[in-house]
Every structure is written in structure tokens, then in C-alpha cells.
């Protein structure tokens, strides 16, 4: 396990590359889905005639 984490001495380069990729991909997915959900809610409110939120 320690050897795996060490990445043959290149841990400082391999892990940031993979972790940054995971973070970027996950945050694109999360922000995109969250924005869609909030727009769906907002639209439902406007269409139901309850108008704008204050």
C-alpha cells in the first residue's frame, strides 16, 4: 500500500494529476445538475402563478 501511494517516488506528480481530474469532473457534474434542479423549481413556481420569489 505504501509503495502504491509512493508511485515510485513520483507521488507528488501522479496524485495531484488524478485528484485534480476527479475534482474537476465531479464539480462539473454537481454544479450542472444543481443548476438544472434549481431552474426546474423556479420555473414551476413561475408557471404555477406564484410569481417571483421575494
Amino acid at each position: 500500500m505504501a509503495a502504491f501511494l509512493d508511485m515510485g517516488g513520483y507521488a507528488a506528480f501522479v496524485w495531484p494529476a488524478w485528484i485534480l481530474s476527479a475534482v474537476v469532473v465531479a464539480s462539473i457534474a454537481m454544479t450542472s445538475v444543481r443548476r438544472l434542479k434549481s431552474l426546474e423549481r423556479e420555473l414551476a413556481e413561475v408557471e404555477n402563478g406564484r410569481g417571483e420569489r421575494p
Partner: peptide
């Protein structure tokens, strides 16, 4: 995997943009 990810996210984001424009249009109309 990245390509499928891009397609899935594109679908979500295009839907959000369409809703955004519809919302804008409704507000103008209102």
C-alpha cells in the same frame, strides 16, 4: 468515459439553458 461524461453533462446543461430562456421569456411576458 470522458466522452460519455461530456454527453451526459451536455444534456443536463442544455436543458438548464433551455429552462433559463423559457423562464426569461415568461418573466418578460408577465
Amino acid at each position: 468515459g470522458f466522452t460519455f461524461f461530456f454527453l451526459a453533462v451536455a444534456l443536463v446543461r442544455i436543458r438548464a439553458e433551455l429552462l433559463e430562456r423559457r423562464l426569461e421569456a415568461l418573466r418578460h411576458a408577465r
